[in-house]
């Protein structure tokens, strides 16, 4: 087992280097000399010269790359070009709010989607099944922007059921008061695609031979679904949920932006709008690393739920 983990970590290095290279190429080569961006933000020429020296823009590329790598390893990217806040501080403080919305959202949406998908799988082929699927398709064709705009307008602004935006200092307050509508919107948007996907997983399993054996043993349909099929379908479901998580972090950016939740997603939008390279670079590299670690975690989890898997 530990040999496997070591080998995987070792294999991650080329990919991480690839991401670093990609980010570097994008921002240091294509992006070019940031002086013109900085000039609009800070009027102090010494400051600009300082940053340019830090980045080493007049140095050969491999020196710049080395500087970048050092920054990654030491978690020190300097300061944000627009707010002057230390980038590491930015990352550290924004993670919390993002997770406060995302974790409950993921748990709720997975459970609800599984339950609904099982229900739909039970009545597969019927009119209900088709209607639900069409409803999902229609629901998915409306942009998330519309859901946010309309829900925010109706439920928060007009009916006053939720706060229109904002964030507090108290965790409980954040979780139940400020996150409620964002989580609701997140649920509405993500249940439809997950329902469709999980339904496919369940139907694939229902057609397997072992289900026929279970019927031949005299088990009832609900038992077969909840015990046999679910246990097998859990494998692709878990894979899907786990591999989606890091993307969710960024995907919630719209919600964060509209509701002024100080999370990573909103930070990235602001950074892109302001061409704040250090923040963008840092977030990209660390999220990529997190994704790779998550994949490793997923594979280990795989072993726990699928006895056929041999980690070699």
């Amino acid at each position: 087992m530990s040999a496997y983990i070591l080998r995987r970590l070792w294999q991650m290095l080329p990919t991480l280097m690839g991401v670093v290279l990609l980010v570097f190429l994008l921002f240091n080569w294509v992006g070019g000399d940031p002086a013109y961006i900085l000039a609009g933000k800070m009027s102090n020429p010494e400051q600009i010269a300082n940053i340019r020296a830090q980045l080493g823009v007049d140095q050969p590329y491999w020196v710049q790359l080395w500087i970048f790598v050092k920054q990654i390893v030491t978690f020190d990217f300097g300061a944000s070009w627009s707010t002057g806040e230390a980038v590491s501080h930015v990352l550290a403080t924004r993670l919390g709010p993002s997770l406060t919305v995302l974790v409950p959202l993921t748990i709720l949406e997975t459970l609800i989607a599984i339950g609904l998908a099982l229900g739909v799988a039970y009545v597969r082929g019927s009119l209900t099944d088709r209607m639900v699927m069409i409803a999902c398709t229609v629901g998915m064709s409306v942009s998330i922007l519309v859901y946010i705009i309309v829900f925010q307008y109706w439920l928060a602004y007009k009916l006053g059921l939720f706060p229109v935006q904002g964030w507090g200092d108290n965790f409980a307050e954040n979780l139940f008061h400020y996150s409620a509508l964002p989580i609701l919107i997140g649920l509405v948007v993500s249940i439809a695609p997950d329902l469709r996907l999980f339904r496919t997983f369940f139907l694939d399993e229902i057609n397997q031979d072992y289900v026929r054996t279970a019927r031949a043993k005299g088990l009832s349909e609900p038992t077969i679904l909840w015990v046999h099929v679910l246990r097998n379908a859990a494998i692709p479901v878990v894979t899907h949920v786990m591999s989606n998580l890091p993307a969710l972090l960024i995907g919630a950016f719209l919600i964060e932006r509209f509701f002024s939740i100080p999370g990573i997603g909103r930070e990235i939008i602001l950074a892109v709008e302001r061409s704040d390279f250090p923040v963008i670079k840092a977030i990209t590299v660390y999220v990529a690393a997190a994704t790779m670690l998550f994949n490793l975690l997923t594979d280990l989890l795989y072993k726990a739920i699928d006895p056929r898997v041999q980690l070699e």
Binding site: Q208, Y210, R212, A216, H228, N232, D306, P307
Partner: peptide, 14 residues
């Protein structure tokens, strides 16, 4: 009761 042709796939793998 009944037994089938392909025992590998007729048993629940998990």
């Amino acid at each position: 009761s009944m037994i089938f042709q392909e025992p590998m796939s007729s048993l629940n793998p998990v």
